[in-house]
């Protein structure tokens, strides 16, 4: 292992065990020693966890400059960029995994972004809030208002989520794009696996989030 003295103060300050459960669930999908591009990497928590727990060669793209600065200051390879505009530059198959966590619904063109994910990564790991979960359906049906939940915690007029979808909608888009679903399951609001495989009627009804491992169909 590396010597503690070589790690930056910022990296030392955050105990790795404290990684958010939804990020850890995603991290568990990644094979050790692989090359990973984390799109929308935030403060770099997942990249940092992957590099130290799974010896991953990780890169990140983050929209907020403050997030980028925090990542680079702890020794992570991160650039300021945007999933909608900056994925086209990367060569095909450059990474083993392209990860997009809780971001697809906030992109302007999810179809193109998804296409780039499975092009750049030999596999893509995608998670998103499921708009088909029963209590969201109920809020809209009974309350007649746009649902605000733990996973979708902002009102319609301030949410960055411009392209919300259900798990079944997502599966449909994968079929249109000829993308193979290698693995899929549903998560609870905190991002813990619910032990329910997707797709399926109950997955779409009970899952707060969907987590998919995808690859291009040969």
């Amino acid at each position: 292992m590396t010597e503690p003295s070589l790690l930056s103060a910022a990296a030392q300050a955050r105990p790795r065990a404290s990684i958010r459960v939804d990020l850890k669930t995603i991290g568990e999908m990644v094979e050790p020693g692989s090359r990973v591009l984390d799109i929308g990497c935030g403060d770099g928590a997942l990249l940092d966890w992957l590099s130290h727990e799974k010896n991953v060669d990780g890169r990140g793209i983050e929209l907020s400059q403050a997030g980028v600065n925090a990542c680079v200051a702890q020794g992570l390879s991160v650039i300021q960029g945007d999933a909608d505009t900056d994925l086209k530059d990367y060569p095909t198959g450059a990474f083993d995994y392209a990860i997009l966590s809780q971001t697809l619904q906030a992109t302007w063109d999810p179809k193109t972004v998804l296409g780039h994910l499975v092009r750049i990564g030999k596999r893509a790991v995608v998670s998103f809030p499921n708009f088909g979960v029963w209590h969201v359906r109920l809020k809209l049906l009974v309350g007649g208002k746009m649902p605000v939940t733990d996973s979708l915690d902002q009102s319609w007029y301030e949410t960055p989520n411009v392209h919300l979808c259900t798990i079944d909608d997502f599966v449909e888009l994968c079929r249109v794009l000829d993308i193979e679903i290698e693995y899929a399951q549903v998560l609870d609001a905190a991002g813990r696996p619910k032990g329910l495989r997707a797709p399926g009627f109950f997955a779409n009804l009970l899952g707060e989030q969907g987590l998919f491992v995808l690859k291009r169909a040969r």
């Binding site: 600065n69 990542c71 390879s77 650039i79 300021q80 530059d89 990367y90 060569p91 450059a94």
Partner: peptide, 13 residues
């Protein structure tokens, strides 16, 4: 990025 280089990029305010 186009050659998959290991790159960090920071714009300082």
């Amino acid at each position: 990025n186009a050659v998959a280089a290991n790159v960090s990029f920071v714009e300082i305010v």
